[in-house]
Write a protein that binds this DNA or RNA. Structure first.
Lengths: 577, 577
DNA sequence: TTGTTGGCGATACGCCGACAA
DNA sequence: TTGTCGGCGTATCGCCAACAA
């Protein structure tokens, strides 16, 4: 799936202005060459059917910095829904172009599109074949009607997103007078399989040419498969696997895997009310994560009303702000905020939001939701990538100058053949007797992990430990502000040459680091810079005042995660010999 | 497109007995591991849209011996038509397994399917929603009807090829009494988009369970694209590119190219009345080509009637038997027979048939259609691959023992940089001053060809000349029985290593060789056996009594063809310098 | 201003026997 | 035996104003 692919023959490129009107005004399209973050979690949310099976590598990288290499604005040939194909190229965090060039590239094209969306009532969709035209729509979109005629009537020629034309008889009649579409309307409803709750979007360009688009309701339980209205009546056939609109679990998994491996990938995004972007402009993410999110923060969120006629603004209070500190998606900021919305009726299915979706309404903190946390000084600098590009995310509680002092060290697990040396080919015993030795003689060992794996394919793993510490506060060891990230590298050794096969990394942070700080780039260890980091390790270690108990826990957690990884990779746990 | 691919998720495997009944009893399915010949010409005939663009390599290999690696019997989800995916692996002629194991593998499965096909009349397809059931169908397929009831009526539950069930009300009424399907029938017609001329196949298995299949008429001018009945009314949209039923030109071209290169490939075959198999069992082809076809031979051909109720047998006279002796598909036996059918009304679009489609009805030759030909002794041996596997096709007029004396010689064109040495990189001047020197001092030069080509990719061509001769007849030089085949090899020389890129070969035969003899395997020259052949060339040349004029013509023709090939390959003719 | 309802005319659907090939 | 036709009862379509929210 290389990015410079032709525009997918079965789909049709849609005029960008039409596309925007159909998608709704709140949909933001990333522009080519802009920097974004890709959140595989958000991608998974939009997949239909069974949840995609993701590798540990993917689960360890909850967000991936990318550059947009191409954007295709298309329309689903079957459902008329507009969607976008985004072609992304993962980039190293340090390579993220500091570009604010087209942040306001939403300069509207010369001749505007005026549009009006209406949700179909049951009467519009089901009965008598008529469509009640809201007066505003008739006035602003339709051509002028001769109100002197009796009755005032006209025939509209409207183009759909595929270029097909539809004729609608528009009449102004009834007592009291109202605008109605009659002849032609029910044919459109039947052909497009519209049901009550769907929306139609009427559009008019500068020349008066009219267009019509469709948005479809998402009935819950129907995550997009060929069920419900798309099923051929009384035919048990499957009719699956076509170029349908929804994201298959396979497509999501493929994109996520490629992204995690750093390969160019493609995602499909259907803009829908309530569906959150999983490809977000880098500026937005970085700005949102520069805030120290804690419980009590007042936030507001603007959402488009269902008919996209106006924007609604909701306020709420952050209940908690936490990203998982173990397991899959560790350290992910995706939906890390749990918000209690003031208007408790609506938005109840949007209690978990990502921080870039909201703005701060009032920064009055009610209470800290982290009892163990000590207040550390909060210097909310913008904190983008510094000159060396080593750290690009701001760490709450750590100033940028502090960040530069975080340096990695390297250590390896004891990974040796189980039982007798060479007793069984590729049979390894991995034990948690991980030792970390530094100049200040900090030594840890975790005896809580001991497992045997049979290694079918890989025969070397090396684990890297990156340690960062704030030296500005002189805290007691047990509450030391610290950051630890691990990466485990699986190396295949077929014949004489060895090649890196995969990297699984995750990160943990000291307790007093706010969860938002757990955002951190991939460890990205290579043989080359590992050496460099080792050299720096001594000076780094000298500065460390790590909690032994904390580090042990970190390493234990990592080993447990690695255990899961190994299991997923096909290693089989065996009895210790 | 590797052959061991899973069964293409969007299609459904069909019970083999159902598949056979739907396809028609005359359709022969090759079995796994059986030997076949693949005829790209026949494949091209079934492609829709524009003719596939084929490389010279493909055009030079009109048939390719293969082994069937897998067979998928499927049904088109849209049209309900059954089709088969054949996975083929090209093999060297010498490797063609001499297997006659499953020649009668058509052992019917334990419980038979009884079926009845009827072509839909306009009344069946269009009007009033009824279907006139032929009495035989009702008696043999439908469950017994209680004729004492007034009226006799029943509801049939019928399963289509996708497993969907349909209900039909079957009533026996009218004056005179007849069987009619009423309620449910028109829904089926509309859903399946049946039109007059299509066929439905009613089937019943041993347990009385009923099935229904569909065959569709092929309106001329509509070679399968999404036109006609499949077009959505009043929607200008394209709706193309789906997993439709027909063979796209691209798919055909891909299969043909892969086949010509010796790579495993897949073909899709829709069994249709009048569509000839392009994958034919090796035994049939070889048996058919062991016959010396000439004009005047009486032949008969059995074809299934359109409703597959019975087989019709037609007789005719071979008018001529000739395969192209130059240009594309040179030496192809595909549709090499031109037949005048006695029943001149029907079969007029089947005047050209392949020899394995017919049987000889009477071998009385009326006259020879080749005035120049001398009668050579016709030893119609079976002539399959001999021990060395060098020649696998019988040559009429050449006994097998004769064939072994045909040995190749090698010669190269003068192929040198045009103008000054190194004047332009990759700029070659190919001139027709081809010299052939042998022990009997036969020397030819053709001055009729002189062309300059700019060579964008390849930088070496070598041409091989294979000469075969019958030494049994002592004929004058001008009518010498002889066979000449050329092969030109394009070699890419990127950096230090060179690799063969493509082989274009064709064959010409002496005039008195009957055209059927022009069937010959690919030259298949490699560096290794070229040397070996050179060694044998002297003894071979000693035996030759070639017509100089004939050989000149052969070489001239080859150079002209190579000129075309070079043009197709992207060489550009330039002015001679 | 606009969603829903029921009336009601027009059309198309679909079952039927008559008739003929 | 079976293809086609016209009859005709019925279901649905689709346009409409009345009425209500």
């Amino acid at each position: 799936m290389p990015p410079p692919r032709p525009p997918a023959a079965e789909f049709r490129h849609v005029d960008l202005r039409i596309w925007r009107a159909c998608a709704g005004s709140s949909v933001r399209l990333p522009t080519v060459n802009s920097s974004v973050y890709y959140f595989p979690q958000g991608h998974v949310e939009q997949s239909c059917g069974s949840a995609p099976l993701l590798s540990p590598l993917v689960l360890s990288r909850p967000f991936i910095p990318c550059v947009i290499s191409d954007v295709h604005c298309l329309a689903d040939p079957k459902t008329d829904e507009v969607f976008v194909e985004l072609f992304l190229v993962p980039v190293e965090p340090s390579r993220l172009p500091n570009q604010f060039l087209d942040i306001n590239a939403e300069v509207d094209d010369s001749d505007k599109i005026v549009s009006f969306a209406k949700i179909l009532t049951p009467s519009d969709a089901n009965n008598g074949g008529g469509f009640s035209v809201p007066r505003f729509c008739a006035d602003s979109i339709f051509p002028p009607l001769d109100y002197n005629a009796e009755p005032p009537v006209q025939t509209l020629s409207v183009t759909d997103v595929h270029g097909g034309t539809w004729e609608f008889r528009h009449i102004y009649r009834g007592t009291p007078r109202r605008h109605i579409l009659t002849t032609g309307w029910s044919k459109f409803v039947n052909q497009k399989k519209l049901i009550a709750g769907d929306s139609v979007v009427f559009m008019r360009d500068g020349n008066g040419k009219m267009f019509i688009g469709v948005r479809r309701v998402m009935k819950k339980g129907d995550s997009g498969g060929d069920s419900g209205r798309w099923r051929e009546p009384s035919d048990g056939g499957s009719m699956k696997g076509e170029g349908r609109g929804r994201l298959t679990a396979e497509a999501v998994a493929e994109a996520a895997e490629r992204a995690a491996k750093g390969l160019p990938f493609k995602v499909v995004y259907y803009p829908r009310p309530g569906w959150t972007d999983f490809v977000v402009r880098a500026e937005f993410v970085e700005a949102a994560l520069s805030i120290c999110w804690t419980g009590g923060i007042r936030v507001k969120m603007t959402v488009e009303t269902e008919d996209s006629s106006k924007m609604s603004c909701f306020q709420g209070t952050v209940i908690s702000a936490a990203s998982p500190d173990s397991g899959p998606w560790i350290g992910s900021p995706w939906r890390m905020l749990l918000v209690a919305w003031d208007d408790s009726d609506v938005l109840q299915n949007a209690r978990r939001v990502s921080p870039w979706r909201v703005e701060i309404a009032s920064s009055l903190p009610l209470h800290s939701s982290f009892p163990l946390a000590k207040k550390s000084k909060l210097s909310q600098e913008s904190g983008l990538a510094d000159a060396e590009g080593e750290i690009f995310f701001p760490m709450a509680g750590l100033t940028n100058s502090t960040m530069r002092h975080m340096n990695p060290s390297l250590l390896n697990y004891n990974c040796f053949p189980a039982g007798m040396q060479g007793a069984r080919q590729n049979h390894f015993h991995i034990q948690g007797s991980t030792n970390y030795l530094s100049e200040n003689n900090l030594m840890m060992s975790t005896d809580s992990f001991s497992s045997n794996y049979w290694l079918p394919k890989f025969n070397r793993i090396s684990t890297e430990l990156n340690i960062g510490s704030s030296q500005s506060d002189n805290l007691s060891p047990d509450s030391q502000s610290s950051m630890v990230s691990f990466g485990t590298e699986f190396t295949e050794n077929a014949g004489c040459s060895s090649s890196k096969v995969g990297v699984s990394s995750f990160q943990l942070f000291g307790q007093i680091i706010h969860p938002v700080g757990s955002i951190f780039g991939n460890v990205g260890s290579t043989e080359d810079d590992t050496g460099k980091r080792c050299d720096e390790a001594t000076s780094s270690a000298r500065e460390l005042q790590l909690s032994k108990a904390f580090l042990c826990e970190c390493i234990h957690a990592h080993i447990m995660q690695m255990s899961n990884c190994l299991g997923n990779l096909g290693w089989q746990e065996v009895e210790p010999s």
